[in-house]
Every structure is written in C-alpha cells, then in structure tokens.
Design a protein around this nucleic acid. Sequence first.
DNA 1: TCTGGGGTCCTAGGACCC
DNA 2: TCTGGGGTCCTAGGACCC
Length: 417
Amino acid sequence: MFALTDATGCYSAIEKIFDPSIRHRPVVVLTNNDGNICALCPIARDLGIPKFEPYFKVKHLLAKHNVVVRSSNYELYADISQKMMNVIARYAQNTYVYSIDEAFSDFNNYDNVIKDWYGYGHIMRRAVWKETRMPVGVGFGPTLTLAKAANHGSKKLPDSDGVCVINDEYSRKHILSQMKLDHVWGIGRKLSQHLSLMGLKTAWDLSCQNPKAMRKQFSVLVERTINELNGVPCLAWDDVKTQKKEIFSTRSMGKRITCRHQLRQALTSHVATVARKAFEQRTLIKKIAIFASSSPHDEIFYKKSVVAAYPAGTNNLATLSESIELAMKELYREGVNYYRAGVGAIELVDATIIQQDMFSPVDTPVITECYHDINKRFGRGTLMIGSEAGTKTWSMRREFLSPRSTTRWSDIPKINC
DNA sequence: TCTGGGGTCCTAGGACCC
DNA sequence: TCTGGGGTCCTAGGACCC
C-alpha cells in the first residue's frame, strides 16, 4: 500500500500560521515577480477566484472581496515544508518527498499490521496539524497513481473528510468514476483533449481501455497510467535521492534591463546559484546554457541562447563567470528590453569520479570549497564574483512579502500582551 | 532482378509534473 | 504598465558502427 499526503492550499495555509488576523479571510499567494496567482486558500477558492490568472487582471476582483494578497515567500515555505515532511516520515518505513507540499509513503510491509487505513490516515493528518498547523489530505492506494487519485478524492469528494482509501473494487470505482480525466496523474491538457474526443470523460473510463492498444495510439506513458489505475504497479521511486540531471536558475525581472552591465550582473548571479547547487550535490558542470530574452508578450520577441562547454568538467565560479563575459558579446543587443535571463547546467558529471584531461587546466577545488564554506557559514552573498556586486535594480517585485518568521532572527514573531 | 540486420548515441521537440 | 520557475521522460530521426 502507498499513501500520498498533500497540503491543502499549501502557501496560503503557511501564510495563515504566523498571522492569526487573516485565518478567517480569503488569502491568495502570487508567483515570483507578483505575476500570477499560484495558491488560494479554500475561502478564496469558494469565492470563485481563478488560479493562474495574471494578478493585474484580477486586482479589482480581489479588492471587491477584500482578499489578502501575499508575495511568494519561499524561504518560509521551504522551512515549514521540511517540518511537515519530518512528521509524515514518522508514519511509514519509506517516504519520498515529491514536491514542496506532497510526499509519498511506502507501507509495503505494513499490510498485515494496519487493518484500518482510514483510521491510520486520520492519525497522520492529526499529527501534522498538531505539530505544524498545516492542513493535509491523505490518500491510500495499491499503486502510486491510485494513491494520487485517492488523495484527490480526499479533497474533492463531497463525502470525504480529508482521508480516502482505495483498497477494493468498490472504492476504486467509486473514486475513479467521480474523477475528471485531466486530474489523473500523467494525463495533461493535450492528452485529455485527445481522449475526450474518443468519448472518455472520467478516470474510470480511461482505466477500462486496453493498455496495449492505447500504447500503440499514444505512448508507453498512457499504457502505464492505465495499468496503474487498475492496480498494476508500473511506477516506483528510488530509495536514495538521485542527483539532478539538470540545474537551472532563471528569473523574470522586476524591472526591465536595457543596459549591458545589468544583464551581466543578472547572469553572473544566476551562474553563481547554479554553481552552488552543482557543488552541493557534488557534481561538475560540463555544459551550461546562458540565455536572455524579452517578454513573449512584447511585439517583437528577442531570444538568444549560448552554450559553453568544459570538457573536463568544472564547478569553479571564476571559470564559469568567464563564459558569461564571452556570452555577453552574443547575447547583448542595444535597444532590447530584457525581461528574462538565466543559466542552466545541461550536462553534469559526478565530481567524485573525475576524468582528467591532458589539455585542460586542472581546477583547484580548495578555492571552490572555501568559497562555499564561507558563504554557508556567514550567509549567501558574503563572497561573490565582482560583476555580481552592486544594487540589483532589476530584482523581482515582491510587494506583499510576509516575514520569514522561522529563518531570520529579525523576523521572529512578537506577541504583545 | 535481387541491395542486411542489429545496434548506439545525439538532438530537438513535445508533453507531462509541481 | 503588469503574465512563474523549476524539472523529467519519451519519441522520432539522423549519423554512425560492425
């Protein structure tokens, strides 16, 4: 048996933890740069506020309903998420954190021990609430896809109270036949359009299709999904956390960049982020892509990307920054209003097994290690590449940022008696 | 007249996830 | 005026190998 535990309106729920005055009010959270709405609390959802709408388009609607608006506060969310995951991890032999607000639990050896999954789900749910004040839904199923479906049911079904279990034919049909096709894990917009043309409407309809025939018509992914919906496991997760195969850092600008110096500053700060993440997971970079563009909503869309290669692999920030300098020659055009820029490591190799190259200079890892060590001890930005220094006038807009209550001494909550 | 059969690696693009 | 930021996997097609 597997379980999926998932927070309800995660970001908006976290905003409510440290601000009791908004607990009974509708709350929405915006994406980076205050662009779109990316999370709503149940009260806001019931008011009919749309998700993934540009903020400027729904501003009037939010004002009308007196909705509380917050900017994304990832520092706070990441910390609360970790606390939540620690509680969840206590209740199964294996846990896999799938995203910031959801985790799979593996109960393979518990089948003879736990008789009442429904009751067990409520124990987990109460523990998370008591220790972190996060509301979660729990779904149980014999495959990961069915656990996902049950979790969906735990929030959407009218007769559910936060826990849903698929453990027999009756419960499987009951939940799948009330679940829309595009809510199935692995079925996105395009596929559900195709499938609905074939007359399929619900997850149950999909599960009744012939997997082999669907593989021919679509792909192996659809075949797997159908099998999973029928209780035949096809998906698994790795026991150990695997290294990332790509690492990207990219942002849109709070204020457009037009000058060369600022674009270089933004790119240098992105490459520093990528280098740090690569170092943390102990990989070397063999190829990076450096890119910059105007906004796709602009009349003339400018987009350019440059790839730099390091045959021997590197995580040396100075080496990487030199590539930024070179790329600038190709990326920068006078008169372009840069809206977005970023850097992505697109080829990574394990740093613990290094293939030497006769023709490339050998990196001195000591400097890189010291650099990261100092920044870790004294805070990010203590050391940086020169071209990153200075005021970042383009940095993202976060007008409605809440305090980082659990990670900054200056933001610690105060209680006035 | 008839022109093999098996494989790998790479890339671009698309679809999906949160 | 103002529209997120990450990731993964699969497929098809081309180049190349013996």
